[in-house]
Design a protein around this nucleic acid. Structure first.
Lengths: 133, 133
DNA sequence: GTTATATCTGAGCATATACTCATATAATAG
DNA sequence: CTATTATATGAGTATATGCTCAGATATAAC
């Protein structure tokens, strides 16, 4: 066991924290293989976008067909404003796209990533519990 | 355009909401293909677990090697208590497991799902921006 | 038994966030 | 131009959540 000085993020270079470390080599290896801050942040935002009941329902619906804002609001039984707010977030993260037809905006999934992510997560939650763990 | 009565969740069967619907057939089809409530909720919790910087860093570290609580705390530069709280959540969702060696608990990923999910999300965030959208 | 180490857990708090409401914008019809 | 429809947006608010702190638990050594 030894004491270890951590290098904080860029914002906190002055106040480094001191923590216990049991396996120095493991921590060092993890440090070397760690993702860049921007990647972690982007990953986090992507998963966070999927981690909401309303947005999940929207994405699942768009996986089968394109839909407009008010239809999605009807499906989820929440206000069109709420749907619009969520769609903006999903657009920002490039998870959905839209096409305009007059005053109506039809939304669809941006690419296959969402489908793949949901598919794997479905596998996970449906996996049978293992005894003794 | 027509008015539509929505069936709320089990908890709110009494106060059904009335919303605009443009494409009745789209909404009906989406209703038929919609996931069960428990599946949506489980999916949501799984993605929510991945949608946090600390937990993502933990999972990414465990993808390469098993680690104990205090090493993870040292890596993330947060308290061991905070790590323990997050690991409990990840354990509950069967995303990680542990093995005991004396007083030390070594954590590892429970299966390949986490790796696959992160891998696809990495693809997504690294995808080049498309102009005109 | 006592002591030390590693981890866990509940409570409290500060921040994040998902919604509602009111209003603004964009496209179409007249 | 005005009116209507569909959507977007900013502000405010109630809830959710990630952390710290204090204390509890589990294992090993003595």
């Amino acid at each position: 066991m030894l004491r270890y000085n951590h290098e904080g993020s860029v914002k906190q270079t002055k106040d480094k924290c001191e923590c216990r470390v049991i396996h120095d080599e493991k921590v060092n290896e993890a440090r070397q293989k760690s993702l860049e801050d921007w990647a972690i942040e982007d990953l986090c935002q992507t998963f966070k976008a999927l981690g909401d009941v309303s947005r999940l329902k929207i994405l699942w619906a768009l996986e089968h067909q394109e839909m407009c804002v008010c239809d999605l609001a009807a499906l989820l039984c929440i206000s069109e404003s709420a749907v619009s707010h969520q769609l903006r977030l999903l657009r920002t993260l490039r998870l959905v796209r839209n096409r305009r037809a007059g005053t109506i905006l039809y939304y669809r999934l941006a690419d296959n990533h969402v489908s793949e992510l949901i598919s794997i997560a479905l596998e996970h939650i449906q996996e049978p519990r293992i005894e003794g763990q």
